[in-house]
Structure formats: structure tokens, C-alpha cells
Design a protein around this nucleic acid. Structure first.
Lengths: 158, 158
DNA sequence: TTGACGTTGATACTCGGTCTCATTTGGCGG
DNA sequence: CCGCCAAATGAGACCGAGTATCAACGTCAA
């Protein structure tokens, strides 16, 4: 674990805030740091609890508000897990993409839209819809978790 | 509006319940009917309110429970609207598909998975994930709504 | 310094959904 | 037809995520 990665990530988020004209207040910096420190998806409650564990006090509403602006800036996105509940993930604000999420550890990766755009177009044409937005979410087991499972369960199960 | 369409749809749902070993109680029949009568997506609250309007009394919990079993039977699915809120839609329980939803009127159509499976596979391979599930949701303007808009706003806007 | 405005926290509230529990009902064997 | 049991139901408490309100506070510029 190289802390520099998260520090950079935090800075990236803070800069995004400033660029958009928001004050980079201590609270927002805190949220940025907490968000950057997550490996994978998280909820507002997660952040709140980790904040508490670090003995930093921040109001619930403030966390939600920070997530709201980060979502607007597309620094984080909200996704719906297969369970039906919501979670946030950090991601690249700069290009249209989708999410590939590990059902085991929650890690999330951005996936380029790629050929999907073509497919979406085609569906639209076929059904006569003018398509405005689409959302694709992929869930599965990431390489690390797969490797870990192999160790505890060598050879797998029938 | 040909009522027979909805009657058949209702029957289809009721049969699905019975096939799965659930009692087709009056309440469940009612929910089936209400669900079948929706053009597009709906919420539990919608059903409840339409029930009330018909002066049939049914408990809130019962509606949720009915939707729960219908969801399990894949007669309805829950989707997340671009607004972030949830809604249910009726759909075909028999094959894997996705939803194309009109952002204006809420009408929803099933869309075959088609080439998406291949794309999903490829993403999985490229990222080293063993993909378990995926969800694709498309939102746009359906032909009917598009036509209606043309009438009120002929030629469109620049 | 003053005032405007952005930010914050506490708290109340809403909304969708679940849980509990006592009651009712449906279906079935006798 | 009776009686029984499991399934289904309704009322209402509860819950978690998110929003609204409002008063207090910070920041910055004139």
C-alpha cells in the first residue's frame, strides 16, 4: 500500500472541488480523503463511521452534501448493487464509462463504453426510441479475490 | 385499449404464482391486475393508491410482499431510474433481457441481451474478472411520445 | 467593520421498504 | 361438514438513506 496513491487521489478530488468554485473546506477535504482511502464502494454511513473512528467530527448532513457535490462533479458515482442497495464509487470524471464491481471485496474499476455505444444505438433504432442515457453495471469476482479463494479452496468445487 | 390484453397479462401473472406454489389469493390477484394495468413503470405506492381509488382495501405490507414474490418469479423487475429512485416493471420471466424505458411516459420494453453477452465476456477477460451478473438500462423517448412532441412543437427547436 | 454568502450541524422529516405479531383465511384430511 | 395447520394478511412499529429547515458560523470583499 503506497499512501502516495491516495494522497494524489485526495488532491485530485480537492482540485476538482476548487476548479468548480467550491471552497475546499476542512470538512470537504476530510470527505475527499475518506473517499480516496476506500478500496471499492462505500456508503455515506461508512464515511461517517470512519470519520468517527479517526475522532474527527463531521455532521451527517455535511457528508451527504459533500457526496452530492462530488457526484455532481462526477468524481464519484452512485451505483446500485445487485442487492438493490446503493453505494458510491470514485471514478474518472472525464469520460463516459461504466463500472465493473467485485461482488466480494467491492473494488470497482471503470470500464470504457467501447462498443456499447454502437449497440445502444442499434437498440434505439430497432425500437424507434431516441435514447438519452444508458447505464451498464457489471458484477463479478476480481482477480485478487479469485486468487484468494483458490488458496483457501484449491481446485475449486464441483 | 383492449381490456383483453390486460386480462391475459393478469392471467399470465396469476398462473406464474400458482406454478410456483403460491396461493392465488384475492389480494395477489388484485396486485396482478393492478400491475398488469400499468402502462410502464410503477411503484408500490402507485398500486396502493390505485387500489384505494377502486375502493378495494389491501395492506401496504401485502403489496410489498406481493411485489417481492413477483420479483422473485421475475414477472416484475425493479429498476433504477436516472433520477435515482426505484420503480417496478412487468416483463418476460423466461429470458435474460434488459429494459428500455421511456423517460417521458414510463413505458418499458424488454430488450434482448443480444451481443451484450459477448461484450460483457470480453470486458471480464480484459480485466481478469469472473463476471457473474450485469445490468443494462436504457432511457429515452419512445416513438409515441416523440410523435406527440412533434405535434405540439412542429419542426422542433434549434 | 459590515454585510453577503457559502458552509455547517442538529434535528425533524420523508420515503421506500422490512419486521413483528396477532388475526384471518385457504386448503385439506378426516 | 368439521377442524386443523400453514400460508397470508393488516396494523403499526421500525429502519436506513437521504432531504429540508434553520440558526449559527466562517470567509471574503468592499
Amino acid at each position: 500500500m503506497r499512501p502516495s496513491i491516495n494522497v494524489n487521489q485526495t488532491e485530485r478530488i480537492v482540485r476538482a472541488l476548487e476548479r468548480a468554485g467550491y471552497q475546499a473546506t476542512p470538512n470537504r477535504r476530510l470527505v475527499a480523503r475518506l473517499v480516496a482511502a476506500t478500496g471499492g464502494h462505500f456508503t455515506a454511513a461508512d464515511l461517517l463511521e470512519r470519520g468517527r473512528r479517526e475522532r474527527v467530527k463531521i455532521g451527517r448532513a455535511t457528508v451527504f452534501r459533500a457526496l452530492e457535490v462530488l457526484t455532481a462533479l462526477r468524481v464519484v458515482e452512485r451505483l446500485e448493487l445487485p442487492s438493490g442497495s446503493h453505494a458510491y464509487v470514485v471514478c474518472d470524471p472525464d469520460e463516459h464509462h461504466h463500472h465493473l464491481v467485485c461482488s466480494n471485496c467491492g473494488r470497482s474499476e471503470d470500464v470504457a463504453d467501447g462498443e456499447l455505444a454502437r449497440l445502444v444505438d442499434e437498440v434505439g433504432r430497432r425500437h424507434g426510441y431516441r435514447i438519452e442515457t444508458h447505464r451498464l453495471e457489471l458484477f463479478g469476482i476480481c482477480p485478487l479475490c479469485a486468487a484468494a479463494t483458490e488458496v483457501t479452496d484449491p481446485g475449486g468445487r464441483a
